[in-house]
């Protein structure tokens, strides 16, 4: 009896040790994010004002703003979403619901998994050769959008496939047994049921794209830009203009990088402020993804 109690106490101690160790390991992540954000806010908070969002970068740190970077990031993300979301979802649907299971589809699957692990700078090099020069798009918003779309495509595909796979086989069989075509099954059942899951994956992919710097530097994003791309909506017919697609651009992380690399400490404050904006954007995107995921779980339980 005494032996047993000692053994129990010993096992309890081991359990407690892991409990504490695990808590410490978990806090590493939280503390890092908190320190990072705190440090940036302390340094850059007093720079964040309406002027900061509405001004162009300048030689003078106190006049510098992030307007072109914000617009650039927004437009690039718009092009990226427009390309990556439909292509990624369609590819995932094809792979999961249409493609025959053979060595070729396994090879494609393996490749997609590998693509997700390719360093982003490689995408930049590839895009510089193919998109910028060969396709002749130049150092434009369109080229940047295509580059980032290719970069996040594997993430979108993988997330969509996971969402599709969480739908039980019985649901597919039910729809097919009623005489639906595969497309009707996908359109009326699989897509609606996996929408939250897909949206979560897409948002996480976009939040990765918004912070990407290396591939955009490679394809030649400008780091100092004092103008905006032409507006997409014009006052004269035909009202819509796509000139902005071929405009040079900068994005938030590149703007931050540019300011950080200046010697004057005042520019470092501006950089911190821009970094806060970037992080807040990313955190907002990720929280949206989390809320969507939670909603999906509570709404449908198989």
């Amino acid at each position: 009896m005494e032996n047993m109690r000692q053994a129990i106490a010993r096992r309890r101690r081991v359990d407690l040790i892991f409990h504490v160790l695990g808590a410490i390991c978990t806090s590493v992540g939280i503390v890092t994010i908190a320190l990072l954000l705190g440090f940036l806010i302390v340094k850059g908070a007093n720079r964040i004002s309406w002027e900061f969002f509405s001004s162009y970068p300048s030689r003078f740190p106190h006049k510098s703003g992030i307007l072109p970077a914000l617009v650039g990031s927004g437009l690039v993300m718009f092009v990226t979403s427009l390309l990556a979301i439909p292509i990624g979802i369609a590819a995932a649907i094809f792979l999961d619901e249409y493609a025959p299971r053979n060595w070729f589809s396994s090879l494609i699957e393996l490749n997609i998994t590998n693509l997700a692990g390719v360093p982003s700078i490689i995408y930049g090099l590839m895009a510089l050769g193919v998109v910028v020069y060969w396709m002749g798009l130049g150092r434009s918003i369109a080229a940047a959008g295509i580059t980032l779309a290719l970069l996040i495509l594997p993430i979108v595909i993988t997330a969509t496939r996971e969402a599709l796979r969480s739908i039980p086989r019985e649901i597919r069989e039910a729809a097919m047994a009623q005489g639906a075509t595969r497309w009707q099954m996908v359109r009326h059942h699989l897509l609606p049921y996996s929408l939250s899951g897909i949206a979560t994956g897409v948002i996480i992919a976009l939040s990765r794209a918004i912070g990407e710097t290396a591939p955009l530097i490679t394809i030649g994003a400008l780091s100092f830009i004092a103008f905006l791309p032409p507006a997409p909506i014009q006052s004269q017919p035909p009202f819509l203009s796509f000139e902005w697609l071929s405009s040079p651009f900068t994005v938030l992380p590149i703007q931050v990088f540019n300011w950080v690399s200046r010697p004057q400490p005042a520019f470092h404050e501006v950089a911190a402020a821009a970094a806060v904006v970037l992080i807040v954007f990313t955190l907002l995107l990720n929280s949206t993804a989390m809320i969507l995921r939670k909603r999906a779980r509570s709404r449908i339980s198989w």
Partner: peptide, 28 residues
Amino acid sequence: RMRIGMVFQKPNPYPKSIFENVAFGLRL
């Protein structure tokens, strides 16, 4: 499949409204 109906071992309604569950085959 349009001429022969099937009911499965495990109840597998679509996660939609009761009405839409019955309506799907008719809409097809």
